[in-house]
Design a protein around this nucleic acid. Structure first.
Lengths: 148, 148
DNA sequence: ATTCGTGCAAAACCTTTGCACTTAT
DNA sequence: ATAAGTGCAAAGGTTTTGCACGAAT
């Protein structure tokens, strides 16, 4: 649990509860994409009795504070991933989504990242649209599913 | 209503019903992003009594046949847009989503389209992932919302 | 002490589905 | 005639919310 998270909470008038610490810790350790129900169940297995409603409320809060990133994929519940870098509104990676099993993987933007950011800045000229971020997702078949 | 749509329907053993024609016609005329409930209501206003269930079933079918494109945006119902070009699995445009009002606009991929396609082809080398398509969405503030 | 967070259960919301009836082929 | 599509109402899954209780400040 980073100090900056505590600060952000306090800065906005939120409280540092046990539930919020537990959920954030879980995401820091689990290091992948997890939906609310999954998080709820795995916390329960680890002996934590946090209600599903609180898991949802906490994930919304963490997403708002940009402590986690929310990803919405068609036909699946929203998934949440810890936000490593503490950058402001800049997506630090893209996603690969397997159309067969639904698994979500991270992808390094590489040199593409800079081009996309430039594009983002040039958007207003053409479309009268002030972009604050973007999201790039590739769909396809992951290694596991390809080999079976 | 394109001939190719009729052919596609028949080719897969589907029937050309009045409901399907009406829904497709609506999307051809409306030319934007529309969700199921909105389509249902506007058809109703135009005197068509098509059930919401049929609207959903038809949109699923049209999406499967790639006659329309489905777009899922966080916190909003799925929207559907007529698929102009009859290309196979290749996204022909990207999206601008206004974070304030939720409006979705189309964006011409321009030269980016080719780079992205190349990237898609190179993905397996790095990530062991066979990509079949991708989706790029910019978030920000649209002209209408910026001026108010 | 006060304000905010939590748990529970109920609701909201979008979407799908079972079944009997209707329609396209 | 037959198989597929439709409408209705009910259920499904995900997420939010009202309210009374509990906990952090």
């Amino acid at each position: 649990m980073t100090q900056s998270f505590r600060d952000k909470l306090h800065g906005e008038g939120y409280r540092l509860t046990r539930e919020r610490q537990v959920i954030l810790s879980f995401l820091e350790t689990a290091k992948g994409h997890h939906d609310a129900v999954e998080i709820h169940q795995r916390l329960r297995i680890n002996g934590h009795r946090i209600s599903l409603a609180t898991v949802y409320r906490t994930l919304n809060l963490l997403a708002e504070l940009k402590a986690v990133e929310r990803l919405c994929v068609e036909g699946q519940p929203a998934t949440y991933e810890i936000n490593g870098a503490d950058q402001e509104g800049r997506p630090h990676h893209y996603h690969l989504v397997c159309s067969v099993c639904g698994r979500v993987m991270d992808m390094d933007p590489g040199s593409l990242g800079a081009s996309m950011q430039k594009l983002e800045e040039k958007l207003p000229q053409t479309y009268d649209f002030r972009a604050t971020g973007h999201q790039l997702t590739f769909f396809g078949v992951c290694d596991r599913c390809a080999s079976s």
